[in-house]
Each structure stands twice: as C-alpha cells, then as structure tokens.
Amino acid sequence: MAGFMKRYRATIIAAVVLAVLAAVLFLLALPRGASGRLIALVHGGDGAVHELPLDEDAVLEVATPLGTNTVVVEGGSVRMDAADCPHGDCLRQRPISRPGEQIICLPHELWIEIVPEDGASSGMLDEDAVSYPDDVDTVAG
C-alpha cells in the first residue's frame, strides 16, 4: 500500500486538485438558491429595506421625501406598479422574478432586487440587471 501511494503520489495529488477545482467551478456555476424561496428586497430612498417573499402576493407603498412608489408582488414576480417620479422609467422595466434581477427608480433612490431567502443583498445598483420587455437592450420613448 505504502509502495502504491509512493508510486502514484503525484497522480493522486493531481486527481484531488482537479476534483476540487471541478467542484468549486460547479458550485460557482449553480444558480444560488435556485431551488429555494425567493425574496424581493425593496431598498427605499430613506435607507429602509423591505422584504417581500415572491410566493406571497403583496402590495407595498414606499413613501419617502423623494417620492412614492408602489411595488406589487403577484404570481411569483415583482413589478413597479406606480411611481410619481418624473419620467416613469422604473415603470417601464419588466417584472422580475429571478435572483440578481433589479428594478431601479433612480430619482427616488429606490431599487428592488431578487435574492434567495437566505441570500444577502448584492449591495449595489446594477443597471445591467434591469430587464426590459422582449429582451431588448434598451427602450426608446
């Protein structure tokens, strides 16, 4: 046995390193929390963070000195239902339901992100995570 170990030591080390590398890559590639419950974190312009589970329909009105937004959870996705911001760009963003997606209302400094139930906030606005209808890159008008 000792002779076997000695003879194939390098092979075994290589196999272990490759296995660990493959496992790490596999875990990184897995969508986090894909099988669990999802939460919409609504970050208000006043710094308050509201948690809305996506599996419970709900209406949340966030009113801060910057303005008022109405966020609706319905059928497993969350959308901006109403906002008194100047241009209504947040209302043009598609309802979101997947981890990492965001809806942003910049004038009101309010943003919504989807995270797994046990997941933490990404902590940052990510315009690229905003999705538009029909997979367009941006919307005119």
């Binding site: 209302l91 043009r92 209808p133 367009v136």
Partner: peptide, 16 residues
C-alpha cells in the same frame, strides 16, 4: 443593439 419602442398604451407599463 436591440432597441424597443415604448407601448404608448401601456401606461408606462413594461411593454413595447
């Protein structure tokens, strides 16, 4: 770049 045209009837809804 794929650019959408806002649906004028969608009340600023998420549709093009």
């Amino acid at each position: 770049w794929r650019v959408g045209v806002q649906d004028p009837f969608a009340e600023r809804g998420a549709s093009i």
